[in-house]
Amino acid sequence: MALNTPQITPTKKITVRAIGEELPRGDYQRCPQCDMLFSLPEINSHQSAYCPRCQAKIRDGRDWSLTRLAAMAFTMLLLMPFAWGEPLLHIWLLGIRIDANVMQGIWQMTKQGDAITGSMVFFCVIGAPLILVTSIAYLWFGNRLGMNLRPVLLMLERLKEWVMLDIYLVGIGVASIKVQDYAHIQAGVGLFSFVALVILTTVTLSHLNVEELWERFYPQRPATRRDEKLRVCLGCHFTGYPDQRGRCPRCHIPLRLRRRHSLQKCWAALLASIVLLLPANLLPISIIYLNGGRQEDTILSGIMSLASSNIAVAGIVFIASILVPFTKVIVMFTLLLSIHFKCQQGLRTRILLLRMVTWIGRWSMLDLFVISLTMSLINRDQILAFTMGPAAFYFGAAVILTILAVEWLDSRLLWDAHESGNARFDD
């Protein structure tokens, strides 16, 4: 018995066209964080690309023209004298008006014999932002004059995390709450300039795509075929072959399989920071003279006294001054041990922890910024005066060393310790 099946006739004509040209192939790229070699397709503007294995951002879609970056830099340069030299806060102490600005706080630190601690604050609040705007201006002028731009481009990517104007702005709020127990506070004209400078700096850093600047100024022929001998440069993120001198053909720094002496430098910085954190938390970090009496505060006791007036601000200072430094030390110690013992479990967790400490590390400088600003506000000789204690130097040095330890660690070593050939990683 035959089955009668109805015929289905399409209502619209289906047209099949042959592909007349070869589909576009992607360029081969190595991930600078996990060293995976993959094919990167062509990316349009405002599109980002991520590593298929570790999800690290390979290409950032946010990109401004150099002219727009230069305009932002010149605007920031105009704001800087007002943000640093004009009063941020006014207080009335014992019937006398006192003005506080950024430069005055750094000068008070240096004047009291601790120039190293003052230079830490100076670099993060004044030096690094000033280098940022002058570097962008150098790129703008240098591109037109045919100057060598490689050193500036190499420095810009590392400079971003040292620009800490946003953290200093939080420190202004913390210092205001600490001082309000002794005097009446009012915002100064410099505060508005400083807030504007923070906003412009944040926007500029978020749109400063150094890798795209490398592509514009020093374009290189990408690798179009897969080759395990391809290496990625950690300076400019170019994937290719080393030249005859073993250097990256684009930025001219040595092109090595792994960062040289990464573990040794990381261990040295980490152990030194552990040693410095002990006096930083045991010795007094601030000293207040009130009517001839002397009151010393460690980091913890200062947080407890701050909690009596504002528990939320005390929580912020606790996280930045105690929780973050010790968390960074514990995480980095764990990561280094996992590399030495070739741990194969929990790779995803370790990668996330490394990215976390990379982002939060700079916030530990908050305590030094609060001390710097408070020193310029309260300084009335023996009637009422505020000065920093010996722990300030140890704390600042420990924070900087932990930042350097994270920067010096080559994250690809975590993958080397893991089993080879993993296309995915999980716990």
Rank of each mutant, 00 (worst) to 15 (best):
P41I: 14
W107N: 15
R362T: 04
D426Y: 12
F141P: 05
G235P: 06
D243N: 04
N44Y: 10
H207D: 07
D166E: 15
P222M: 08
I19T: 07
S39Y: 14
I378W: 00
R17Q: 13
Y218S: 05
L336F: 08
I8M: 10
S176L: 06
L352V: 14
L69F: 14
T239V: 05
H340C: 10
I339C: 10
L276Y: 04
I371V: 09
D99E: 09
D243E: 07
L79G: 05
I14C: 11
Q344S: 10
T201S: 08
S262R: 02
T5K: 10
A71K: 02
M72S: 05
Q186V: 09
V399Q: 09
S321F: 00
A196W: 09
C248R: 00
T239L: 06
A70F: 15
F425L: 14
I172N: 06
P41R: 14
W107Y: 10
I131Y: 01
R348P: 12
G61T: 14
E42M: 10
R226F: 13
D181F: 01
E228K: 11
P24E: 10
K13M: 07
W84D: 07
Q104Y: 04
T224H: 11
K342V: 09
L197G: 03
R259D: 12
L40R: 14
F341W: 11
G315F: 10
V179P: 14
N101Q: 02
R53W: 11
L290V: 13
F141G: 04
A417R: 06
E21N: 11
L77I: 11
Q33W: 12
I400S: 05
K12L: 11
D63T: 15
D297F: 05
D381V: 02
V210G: 11
M388A: 06
L404S: 07
Q220G: 04
E228Y: 07
L165E: 07
N281G: 08
F192R: 08
T239I: 03
V317D: 00
A100C: 10
T110K: 15
W415D: 06
T5N: 12
M147Y: 04
R412V: 00
T11R: 13
V313G: 02
G20H: 10
G346Y: 12
L276V: 04
Q382F: 14
G293A: 05
Y394T: 02
L77V: 14
G61P: 12
M155L: 04
I316H: 14
D63I: 15
D99H: 11
V329M: 06
Q55P: 14
I400M: 09
R348A: 12
I285F: 00
A128D: 05
Y241A: 12
A397P: 01
V170F: 15
M76G: 04
A71Y: 03
V152G: 04
P6G: 12
P249F: 09
P10Y: 13
M72T: 09
P222K: 09
P249D: 05
Q186H: 08
I177D: 04
N148L: 02
